[in-house]
């Protein structure tokens, strides 16, 4: 009987947390079921200039030479291989060195930011920084280096 009461108490606490958590964040839950937050956890209302793109869209932009590809991985990872023509902005290193403030990019151009793939966070963080800098068209290629290389698309292995 005591065990039953104890389990009921645990269930009550979990249920209360569930109801309050989902209730207060109901607008976020709605957005989730409308397709938001499937790749990264940024509100696309708040970061209106940021868009997540697929491998096909990234390839199209690459072939049209219509966008600047930015690799947000570390210098070492970039040197081991990157998308052909991409420039390296190693987010974590620049963040530590406070060098992100020194980067200037024209607001009108399209940039495609990528990192290691869906397990990487630096592309999203760098996109947020660019949004704050006023860039108008920021695309995050969430499949990243892993997906690009896996498809055998053009890469550079120059050190």
């Amino acid at each position: 009987m005591a065990l039953k009461n104890f389990l009921l108490q645990i269930a009550f606490i979990l249920f209360l947390g569930l109801i309050i958590g989902l209730g207060i964040n109901f607008s976020l839950v709605q957005k989730y079921f409308l397709g938001d937050f499937r790749f990264g956890f940024i509100s696309l209302d708040e970061y209106s200039s940021i868009m997540f793109i697929t491998l096909g869209e990234a390839e199209e932009l690459f072939l049209e030479r219509d966008a600047l590809f930015i690799d947000s991985r570390s210098k070492e990872a970039f040197q081991e291989g990157h998308i052909l023509g991409a420039v390296n902005i190693p987010f974590e290193e620049y963040k530590k060195e406070k060098a992100l403030d020194l980067i200037f990019l024209p607001p009108e151009g399209t940039v495609v930011i990528y990192c290691d793939g869906s397990e990487c966070n630096s592309s999203v963080e760098l996109a947020k920084v660019f949004h704050k800098k006023g860039l108008l068209d920021i695309r995050i290629f969430f499949g990243g280096w892993i997906e690009w290389k896996g498809e055998g698309l053009p890469v550079s292995l120059e050190k």
Partner: peptide, 28 residues
Amino acid sequence: LEFAQNIANYRVFPAGISFFVALVLPWI
């Protein structure tokens, strides 16, 4: 959302689980 990203960074849970855990766990 920041917490959801923090959970996702551990690279253990898929995005959906990270999202719902981030909404509920802090309240519990």
